[in-house]
Design a protein around this nucleic acid. Structure first.
Lengths: 230, 230
DNA sequence: CGGGTATTTGACGACTGTCAACGCCAGTGG
DNA sequence: CCACTGGCGTTGACAGTCGTCAAATACCCG
C-alpha cells in the first residue's frame, strides 16, 4: 500500500484508527466528479492513487482550479462543509480514495493529538501552496505561470516517487491548465508552444511529459516581457 | 477587551490558558514590520487591534499580498516556520498583538481539544478566503478584483462591528491594493476612478470610505468587457 | 473508418502595463 | 507663517500581453 502523507510518521496509530472507524475505500473512474461544490460534505478523503482536480465554478461559467491533489493528499476537509463543499472535486484519472466521516476526524482531534498535529501540519502545507499560487497568479505572466505550475507538479510527484527524473505523467487538458493558471485555453496553447520551442517541455504522448528543470525554472521566475511569440 | 475569533466560544478556557502560558502583549507602530519572510518565527500572534498586511516578496522585487489580517485574526502560524516565515507581516495601523510561543500552541493541541478544533476551524476559514482570492485573481478582471477586495474587507469589518453600515476605515495605499489584487498601482487608480464615477466608492478622507454594496457586488462579478475607461 | 473533442494558428481588439508629467497633501525646516 | 520636499495619486499616450473569434488540423475512441 502506498505511503500517504497525513499519517506517514504515525503509520501504526493510523492503521488502528482507520480500522476502528471502519473507513471505506472507494474507486472513482477517470473524469468523474467526487463531490460537487453545492453539496454538503459528510466525509473527508485521503487520496491513495490518482490525480484529483479541486476547482470552484463561478457564476458566469468560469472555473478556477484550486489545487491538484496527488496521492497522499487530503481532500474535502474544508470550512463550513456542513453547508456546502465550496468547490468541486473531479477525478483526473481513476482514483482510489479512502473516505471517512467528518465526525471521525473531529473525534480524532480529541483522542489522537499526534495525528491532529500532523493534520494541522498538512493543512498548513496546503495553505503555503495556495499562497504560492496566489503569488504566481498575481505577479507572473502567462508563460511563468504555466512553467511554475508544471514545475510544482514535477516536484510534488518526485516527493511521492511518481516521477522518474524529469519525466512525469500528465493528466490534464489544456483547458484545465488554463483554468488553473488563470488564462485562456488558446493562450495556454501558445505558451506551451513557446515552452516546447525552448526545450523546456516535451510531450511523449498526451499523458506523458519530459520537463527541463532549469529551463522551466528560468521561465517560471520570468515576469519581464517574454520573448516574442513568433 | 475586544472579542477575538479564535477563542470566542471558549473564552474562559482561553483566559486560563493565556494566563498559564504568560502570553505577551505587544504594541507595534503603524507601518512597522512585525516579522520578515526570511526569519524563523518562534511565535504566533492573535491580532487584537489594527490591520496587518501579510505579503510575500518575490525575487524580482514584486510583492503579493496574501491576506489583510483584521482584529481577531491569527498570524504567524505557518508551515515550516522553523526555517522561515515564508511571508512578511506589516502593521498597516498601530496594532496590538498577543504573542505566544509556537511550543505553547503545540502543547495546546495535546491538552485542549476544544481550542484545537477552533484553531483548525479558523485555519480552514483562512484557507477558504485564500481560495476565494485565487478565483478572483485567476478569473476576474481588474475592476472586479478591486471591487471584490473592497467588499471582502467591508464584510469582514462588519463581522467585527468595525464598520458602520457602508462606511469603513481604509488603511492601504493604492500600491498596496495593487499588490493585493495583482495589477499595477496606475491601473488601481484608473479602476478606482471608475468605481467612484459609478458611485460604488466614495472616499471621505484618505483612510475613510463609503461603499455602495450593490454597485460593488455588480462590479465584483463582472468579468465581461467593462465599460470603457473614458 | 468516422465523429467528436482537443489543440493549433491567425487576425484583431481589449485590457493592462509602462513611462512620464502633473497635482495634491503632509510633514519639515526656515 | 510660508516655502520646500517627498510620497502618493491622477492622467495621458503608447506598447504589449492576453482574450476573442474563427477556421483548420490533429487526435482519441467507438
Amino acid at each position: 500500500m502506498r505511503k500517504h502523507a497525513l499519517f506517514k510518521p504515525v503509520e501504526d496509530q493510523f492503521l488502528q484508527w482507520k480500522q476502528a472507524y471502519r473507513t471505506t475505500q472507494c474507486i472513482v473512474p477517470a473524469r468523474h466528479l467526487i463531490y460537487r461544490q453545492d453539496e454538503p460534505l459528510q466525509e473527508a478523503y485521503t487520496l491513495f492513487e490518482g490525480w484529483v482536480m479541486l476547482f470552484k465554478s463561478l457564476e458566469d461559467g468560469k472555473r478556477q482550479v484550486l489545487r491538484i491533489a496527488l496521492p497522499g493528499d487530503f481532500l474535502g476537509y474544508q470550512a463550513g462543509q456542513e453547508l456546502n463543499a465550496g468547490h468541486c472535486a473531479l477525478a483526473l484519472t481513476q482514483c482510489i480514495l479512502c473516505a471517512f466521516p467528518k465526525a471521525s476526524v473531529d473525534e480524532m482531534v480529541v483522542k489522537h493529538p499526534e495525528l491532529t498535529r500532523r493534520l494541522i501540519q498538512m493543512h498548513m502545507q496546503t495553505m503555503a501552496q495556495c499562497q504560492e499560487r496566489l503569488a504566481s497568479l498575481g505577479q507572473k505572466n502567462a508563460k511563468a505561470r504555466v512553467a511554475t505550475f508544471l514545475l510544482d507538479l514535477l516536484y510534488r510527484l518526485r516527493e511521492r516517487s511518481d516521477a522518474e527524473g524529469n519525466r512525469m505523467a500528465f493528466h490534464m487538458t489544456q483547458e484545465e491548465v488554463a483554468d488553473a493558471v488563470g488564462i485562456t485555453p488558446v493562450h495556454v496553447s501558445r505558451v506551451m508552444r513557446q515552452l516546447r520551442d525552448m526545450g523546456a517541455v516535451e510531450f511523449l504522448s498526451r499523458s506523458e511529459v519530459i520537463l527541463d528543470e532549469s529551463e522551466l525554472a528560468a521561465a517560471a521566475s520570468l515576469n519581464a516581457p517574454s520573448t516574442s511569440l513568433r
